[in-house]
């Protein structure tokens, strides 16, 4: 029992070590990526195509639900005018970064792991090495940086669409004053506290999710079973990492300790 536990702990530390080493090699690919912006662009495009639609629709519904729920509480206190603030702050601070990160992990993260894992299983990565092309620089690095760059953009889209959804329900259906909705929002949301912190969160999430995704793919056993397991691990580990990191970041940014 203790023996098993010890072994599992050792294994996960060992994996963390390999993952960090791998991250270091990936980060060193930044020069390669900078020298060939086309590679990065293509990856941002493919991550975007995978995720934008999903993010937009989800953002719309989350914003609409927020307005519904918020209105019932706020109207008890006669504070319907602050509905815009509530919707926007919830989205920009929390739900935008977190929900879009979870969606991103499920869609783009799993796809990245599967893609890289399959390339490994079909000897494409080995083949590249033998053609004197470093697969970490050529395949992994562009995908990694594309993920890091895309995440804040996707979170921004999520929040923007969510606010519009909140407006649709709050102003359109529930009759909150249009002017108050926007002006309260503008007056209360702070550039640094809210928007900047939200962007930092989604950058961190993008970094961690994409790191997990590319590493799991690269580290997967080169069989179909190995790849499918790695894909599952990517989704589970990134979701877990996002939720834990969200608490830590929120405590750092907004906590009054």
């Amino acid at each position: 029992m203790f023996h098993r536990l010890g072994e599992a702990t050792l294994n996960s530390f060992e994996k963390l070590g390999r993952g960090s080493w791998f991250l270091w090699f990936t980060l060193r690919g930044v020069f390669e990526v900078a020298a060939r912006p086309g590679l990065l662009g293509a990856q941002i495009y493919s991550v975007g195509v995978l995720t934008v639609m999903l993010i937009t629709v989800s953002g719309l519904f989350v914003g609409m639900v927020l307005a519904l729920q918020g209105y019932t509480i706020l109207s008890d206190f006669g504070a319907e005018e602050t509905l815009g603030v509530m919707v926007a702050a919830s989205l920009v601070r929390e739900l935008g970064p977190v929900v879009s990160a979870l969606l991103f992990a499920g869609r783009a993260g799993s796809a990245l792991t599967a893609e890289i894992g399959l390339m490994k299983a079909t000897e494409q990565l080995s083949g590249m090495e033998m053609m004197a092309v470093d697969p970490v620089k050529r395949i992994v690095a562009p995908r990694f940086f594309a993920g890091v760059v895309s995440m804040p953009l996707l979170a921004a889209i999520f929040s923007t669409v969510g606010i519009l959804g909140g407006h649709l329900v709050g102003v359109g259906m529930l009759g909150v004053d249009d002017g108050a909705f926007w002006s309260q929002m503008q007056a209360t949301l702070d550039y640094r506290d809210d928007i900047f912190n939200g962007v930092v969160k989604s950058l961190v999430f993008g970094f961690v999710i994409t790191w997990i995704a590319v590493f799991e793919g690269y580290d997967s056993l080169p069989t179909s079973e190995g790849v499918s397991r790695a894909t599952t691990r990517t989704v589970v580990h990134s979701a877990f990492a996002v939720l834990v990191l969200d608490f830590l970041l929120t405590a750092l940014m907004f906590g009054d300790f």
């Binding site: 390339m119 494409q124 080995s126 083949g127 590249m128 033998m130």
Partner: peptide, 13 residues
């Protein structure tokens, strides 16, 4: 300067 032909071909899909 060394070509290698993998068993599977290993073409980029």
């Amino acid at each position: 300067r060394m070509g290698m032909l993998f068993q599977s071909g290993a073409l980029l899909t």
